[in-house]
Amino acid sequence: MYHCKSLFFMNLEDFMLSCPSKSILGIECLGCGTQRALLLLFQGKFSQAFQMYPPIYTWLIFLGILTASVIDKKRSYSTLIKGFAIVHALVMVVAYGVKHQF
């Protein structure tokens, strides 16, 4: 008997996009690992998702803020968006540096 959940997630890996930077230049970009980390999150593997791509959680919070800004037009989210974009960028750079030991 097949487990639908397992087959569903296994098939998603077949549709993941390859990183142009890694494919062409052989260098990982700051976003490499995002797709796999999201897949791990959907599978409930939260610590593995963090290990795969540490900025996954700041990225999700940032997307949540952007979504709220689109839905809730009465409030201004510009300061929060700018601030969290900076935080997320810093987390991305630090995680990239740690991964590649810069």
Rank of each mutant, 00 (worst) to 15 (best):
P20W: 00
F84Y: 15
S21G: 12
L30D: 07
G26P: 03
A89K: 03
Y77L: 04
R75F: 08
G33E: 01
I71Y: 12
P54M: 02
W59H: 15
I56A: 01
S21A: 10
S78A: 13
S18D: 12
L66S: 09
S78D: 14
Y2D: 11
C29H: 03
L63Q: 11
L25V: 09
L60V: 08
F84A: 06
L30A: 08
F46Y: 13
V98A: 10
Y2L: 11
K45L: 08
G83W: 01
T79G: 08
L80C: 08
S18R: 11
V98L: 14
L66R: 00
Y77A: 01
C19L: 05
A89G: 12
A37G: 01
R36E: 10
I61R: 01
C29T: 04
G44L: 04
Y53Q: 03
C32T: 03
W59P: 00
Q43T: 02
M92H: 11
L7D: 08
I81F: 02
K45M: 07
F42E: 14
S47T: 08
S78I: 12
A49H: 02
F9D: 00
D14A: 13
P20Q: 04
A68L: 10
K73Q: 15
A85R: 05
M52N: 09
Q48I: 03
L40S: 07
D14N: 12
V94Y: 15
S23G: 06
K22A: 09
S21Y: 07
L60Q: 05
V94W: 13
R75H: 13
L30F: 14
G83K: 03
G64L: 05
Y57A: 02
A49F: 00
P54C: 02
T34Y: 10
V93E: 04
L63W: 13
K73A: 09
W59E: 14
Q101N: 15
A95P: 04
H88P: 00
F9A: 01
C29V: 04
T34K: 10
G44V: 02
G31K: 01
